[in-house]
């Protein structure tokens, strides 16, 4: 069953149009990758889904028209965002970051700490003093504490050391295997994504130009649209 469906979505930053028609779907329990070069509209698409910028077109989540909702209402329907650049609440501790976002459901602090053991050792430490990798773990943990049905990870491994990247990818794989949560991944790491995602959608200049199974994503397509 389709959880998230975008059809011909357009969005603007003031007078400048950023999305010209994005089609995208994510099914229950499915992992979908949204890929494209920098500036092609990946983060804008995420912001449109999360209602952080106004958008037009078909934007349906679990039967609800997202375009009619405020951002906090979209989140309450079950959309959990791990934003680009991590963006934890810097002045709050690890525990406070998690508690501030908590909503009832299977994900609680214990489960988040089991997924990311380093967070358990840093409970009373302020988010601003954590390493980049730990901040990323905290950002994912904070989104999980909202008990989402769809987790959106926007460049979750960007700017991290190879070892930490491997840890994050491993956690995402465990999330998929253990929780069956639907995940929308925005990343440029084709190799890692290929190992985890079911399907991919490619963006080019604010338009979705290709959608299909990960196995059908040919090197020609990645060369042309992702540039790797």
């Amino acid at each position: 069953m389709t959880l998230l469906a975008l059809e011909g979505v357009t969005a603007f930053y003031g007078p400048a149009q950023a999305l010209f028609g994005v089609d995208l779907s994510v099914g229950e329990g499915e992992v979908v990758a949204l890929m494209g070069r920098n500036g092609m509209g990946k983060t804008t698409t995420v912001r449109a889904i999360c209602r952080l910028i106004p958008a037009r077109g078909g934007l349906i989540f679990d039967g609800h028209d997202l375009t009619a909702l405020a951002s906090h209402r979209a989140a309450r329907l079950g959309i959990g965002l791990v934003p680009e650049g991590r963006r934890c609440f810097r002045d709050l501790t690890v525990t406070e970051n998690l508690t501030a976002a908590a909503r009832a459901g299977p994900w609680d602090r214990g489960r988040v700490e089991a997924l990311f053991p380093p967070l358990a050792d840093r409970r009373r430490q302020r988010a601003a003093s954590l390493s980049g990798g730990e901040q990323q773990m905290l950002a994912i943990g904070r989104a999980l504490m909202t008990n989402p049905r769809l987790l959106i990870l926007d460049e979750a491994t960007e700017g991290l050391a190879p070892l930490v990247r491997a840890q994050i990818w491993d956690a995402i794989a465990r999330l998929r295997a253990e929780s069956g949560m639907a995940i929308l991944l925005i990343d440029k790491s084709v190799k890692e994504i290929a190992a985890i995602a079911d399907r991919a959608t490619l963006l080019e200049r604010g338009r979705s130009v290709w959608s299909g199974a990960m196995t059908d994503l040919t090197p020609e397509l990645t060369d042309r649209y992702i540039g790797v």
């Binding site: 999360c50 952080l52 405020a70 951002s71 906090h72 209402r73 989140a75 309450r76 959990g80 965002l81 934003p83 963006r87 609440f89 810097r90 002045d91 501030a100 976002a101 909503r103 904070r142 989104a143 504490m145 909202t146």
Partner: peptide
Amino acid sequence: QSPERVRTVGI
């Protein structure tokens, strides 16, 4: 610190 980030966790 950031109203937008708080809204994205459903508040």
